[in-house]
Computed example of a mutant assay.
Amino acid sequence: MPTYGVRGLTVAGASAVGAATLCYLLTALFPLVGVRMARSAAEQLDRDVLLGAVLAEVLFSVPYLLALLTAGTLVVIWTWRARKNLDAFPGAVPNLSPAWAIAGWLVPLANLVVPARVLADLLRNSVWQRRQSWLVGVWWASWLVFLIGDRFVARAEQQRYDRLTELPRNDAEFATYVRFYEDALAPRLVPAVACLVAGIAFVVLVRRISAAQQDRLSRAVPVWPGQPVWPGRPGWPAPAAPMPVAPTSPQVPPTPGGTIGA
């Protein structure tokens, strides 16, 4: 069965997941910057400062989206390779086919359950330690909280933002923008904490599974070719001794009642 190295992909995928997690935390904490800009706009009655706050939040989101896309691509490739390796491991009994290692992330509704089952298969059949299965539960629970919480917070913020005055003109209307950013921080903390926990748990799982698989793959590969040894040097095999030949009796012509030569 073909096998696939996962060490380099593990480093790249873990780095991308870490970068995406960090970028999301920065976007979640943006209200700390937005409230300062909104207060400055209210003091100066300057709409351009409010527009600058909106543009700044967009700029904060771009690195996160790029890191998330990169991390998602690397994670799908890693999951497929790690699952294919199980087919070459004697004793491994995965519950899902390698196709689900890809489709499980992409098919709607299935992506709420299948990736957790695939990762549990990888952990169980690679590390062979059931006591570590709780890591899968921690990762998947925090990941679901992050997905659902982020969408809920984004939708609620959009509804609150639509109710703001598009072109504020006085102190009261500018103050609504200040309150918008002040109230936006607390709800964002829930998906931010969930994202942090999910990112850390996933990196730990990926590293442990990959280390176990790489160790097993390295022990299964024979050392070939060996160290070169020149003729006449120590270690060069001695000439093989000639095989002993059993003595035979001379052949004699057959005679009545006799034998053919022994």
Rank of each mutant, 00 (worst) to 15 (best):
Q251S: 09
R219P: 03
L122K: 02
Q159G: 09
R160K: 09
A42P: 05
V93Y: 14
P239H: 06
V6G: 01
I260N: 13
Q44A: 15
P228H: 09
A154F: 08
I209F: 05
P108Y: 01
V145Q: 04
A238G: 14
N125H: 09
Q251I: 03
V54Y: 15
A12S: 08
V204H: 06
I200F: 09
L106P: 09
Y24P: 04
T79S: 05
D46P: 03
V75W: 02
A56F: 11
G149I: 13
R83E: 00
T259Y: 14
Q227K: 13
V203W: 03
W224M: 13
G91C: 07
S126H: 01
V136D: 01
P256S: 13
I77L: 10
N125E: 06
L135H: 05
R7V: 11
Q132W: 10
A141E: 00
A186K: 10
G104P: 05
G18P: 03
A28V: 08
E166D: 10
V145N: 01
V178H: 12
G137Y: 06
V145Y: 05
I209K: 02
P115F: 04
D162G: 11
W78Q: 01
A42N: 08
A19V: 02
D183A: 10
G91Y: 10
W100Q: 01
A71M: 05
V203I: 11
G8Y: 14
P228C: 06
P247F: 04
M243A: 13
R160N: 09
P247K: 03
A194N: 08
A116H: 10
A212E: 00
R208Q: 11
A246K: 12
F30M: 03
P191M: 09
F202H: 04
V62S: 12
V93H: 14
G226R: 04
L96Q: 04
V93K: 14
R207I: 08
R163M: 10
P187S: 10
D121R: 02
P2H: 15
P108A: 03
A82S: 08
R188W: 12
A71I: 06
A175D: 13
P231G: 03
N125M: 06
M37N: 00
V114S: 09
F152W: 12
L50Y: 03
A28G: 07
L55T: 15
Y161P: 01
V76R: 02
R188T: 08
A241K: 15
C23P: 03
V138A: 07
I77Q: 05
G52W: 03
V197M: 09
R117T: 06
